[in-house]
């Protein structure tokens, strides 16, 4: 008798695009069309004239760019799905920025460098394993949807690591520090996962 209640039409009517979309939403997440703003503090207002981006820590010589110099670096467009640990996922977000691979070309990494702490205006930090930032997996974005990145979304520039939960994509990022050991950042030090892969639901420590 169950067949009378579970019709083929009921289970089989999903649009191809719908199911293709569903396959891009990690477990425990729901799709949003807007772009929620999350923030753990006031929005920093660093004038572009005093903005800089640094790569420091376990590198032979640190590298630093002014805003004007940063804009001269080779930039790329990125279209990425993003997932926040607060359970929203947004598909096909459009960014422009500089690949972290390009930035790392300007430094000589110490062989001990294995982890990165991204640090931001306002004191925010987040820790990411170095292998998760390289080979085209992350970038420093300064445009979103064809416009300068808005301050509430991390402008003038934010790190974007789209394959990890979005708290790893540090807003107002000002640099990357290469580290030998993983050092928990702002949320990681209070129980959030050091890695944060949405497809494995690595939300909290021990997940």
């Amino acid at each position: 008798m169950p067949d009378r209640f579970v019709t083929r039409g009921f289970v089989g009517r999903r649009e191809p695009t719908g199911s293709a979309q569903a396959a891009r939403i990690p477990p425990g997440q729901h799709l949003v069309r807007d772009f929620p703003v999350l923030s753990a503090g006031p929005t920093p207002r660093t004038p572009l004239g005093s903005w800089s981006f640094k790569i420091e820590g376990l590198v032979k010589e640190p590298a630093s760019w002014s805003w004007a110099d940063f804009l001269k670096l080779p930039a790329q467009d990125f279209v990425k799905d993003i997932s926040c640990v607060t359970k929203w996922t947004k598909l096909d977000t459009r960014w422009r920025g500089v690949s972290v691979d390009i930035l790392l070309e300007h430094v000589e990494l110490d062989r001990r460098a294995a982890f990165v702490t991204a640090f931001s205006d306002g004191g925010y930090t987040t820790n990411i394993p170095l292998p998760d930032l390289v080979n085209g997996q992350s970038f420093v974005a300064y445009e979103y949807d064809g416009k300068p990145l808005a301050p509430e979304h991390g402008g003038p520039a934010r790190l974007v690591v789209p394959h990890l939960y979005f708290w790893k994509s540090a807003k107002w990022v000002r640099g990357l520090r290469l580290m030998e050991r993983d050092e928990p950042g702002f949320w990681e030090s209070l129980g959030y996962n050091n890695h944060g892969d949405p497809w494995k639901e690595e939300r909290y420590t021990g997940d």
């Binding site: 999350l38 753990a40 503090g41 640990v85």
Partner: peptide
């Protein structure tokens, strides 16, 4: 109080 975040600050 910042509550629109992964935690409360």
């Amino acid at each position: 109080a910042y509550v629109h975040a992964p935690g409360i600050v």
